[in-house]
Amino acid sequence: MSDHAYIYINGYPGVGKLTIARELAKLIPNSRVFDSNLLINPVDAMCDRSAPYYDQLCKDLRMFLLGMLTDRCGDATTFIFTDARSTHGRYCNPAPIYFQAEASNKEEEVPFVSVVLECDLEENIERLISAERVLGYKKLTDCCALKEIREKEDIYHFDEDFELVLNVTHLSPKMAAKKILEHTVKVAQRFYEGEEEPTAT
């Protein structure tokens, strides 16, 4: 894929977003992965998650750093963002809309591709407690917490035709990355051919 894009990968904790994003980056020249935990971990170092100002600190840092990132890292870079945003509850914030707005606010607009990863609960739990994830930087590994999140919170959808909803229960990270790339190429081709891209509602 010669043209660049903003690829936003969203899904419940443990579905494999970061692993798949890294595989996707191998397929796209001049791409960078920006995992949501890069924003959460600095706040965790400053205060407990129970602090009343924790969520606001996460939001403020997210908006500041993403603004710096998209302004100064080059117009030829494809950014692959991972996130776990829901439509309500603690994991709800305006980040998805912000990513899309940043894409359209660039001096030369770039296509925005939304990807929602889905996974069966049993497989989600296995991935959540995998050795690779447990040994990584601070992530959710509490199975009960995951079940509660899945029961009470719905993953954010743009509900537009540029969004790919992909069930990765039985897909390897490489195969999932390939499917995301195929979808991204289609969206980018349509975008650069001059067809107006949908906006979030």
Rank of each mutant, 00 (worst) to 15 (best):
G67M: 10
G67I: 09
P94Y: 11
C119E: 03
Y137V: 11
E151F: 11
Y156M: 10
N30W: 03
F162C: 07
E102D: 04
I97G: 06
P52R: 13
A188I: 00
Y91Q: 07
Q189A: 05
V134R: 13
C92F: 13
Y192L: 03
D120P: 05
L166Y: 04
L140W: 05
R150I: 14
K178Y: 05
E182P: 01
C92P: 03
N10K: 04
Q56T: 12
T19L: 02
I155S: 02
V15A: 05
L24S: 02
E160K: 04
K17G: 02
E148I: 03
N105W: 09
Y156L: 09
E122A: 11
D154Y: 08
R190A: 05
A131T: 12
E132A: 13
K179A: 06
E196G: 04
K186P: 00
I180W: 00
T201S: 09
E160N: 10
E153Q: 15
A188G: 07
P42E: 11
A131E: 15
V113A: 02
G11W: 03
C144I: 10
L135D: 13
C92D: 13
Q56P: 00
C47W: 07
R127S: 08
I129Y: 11
P52S: 14
R32F: 03
L164H: 03
S114L: 05
E148P: 00
P198E: 05
Q56D: 12
A84P: 08
V185G: 00
L164K: 05
I155V: 12
P111F: 06
L27I: 00
L65I: 11
L135W: 07
V113P: 01
L121F: 13
G136P: 08
T78P: 03
E182C: 03
I97K: 13
Y54R: 08
K147H: 07
L38K: 08
A103N: 00
R72D: 09
N30T: 03
D159E: 09
E109Q: 12
T87Y: 04
C73M: 14
D44Q: 11
V33W: 09
S50C: 07
D35G: 01
I149N: 08
R62I: 07
L65M: 14
T184M: 05
P13L: 10
N41E: 15
E160S: 05
S130Y: 08
A21Q: 05
M175K: 13
H157M: 09
C119N: 09
V33E: 06
I20N: 00
K178L: 04
E126L: 13
A103T: 03
A131F: 11
G74Q: 08
G136N: 09
L164V: 06
M68Y: 12
V110P: 01
T82F: 02
L117M: 10
M63S: 14
T19R: 04
S130L: 06
I180G: 01
F112Q: 02
R62C: 05
G14L: 11
I155A: 02
K179F: 08
D60L: 15
E160M: 06
L181E: 02
V168N: 02
M63H: 15
K147P: 04
G194P: 05
K26P: 00
Q56F: 14
A21C: 09
P198F: 04
E193S: 13
R150A: 09
T19N: 01
K147L: 07
D120E: 14
K59Y: 15
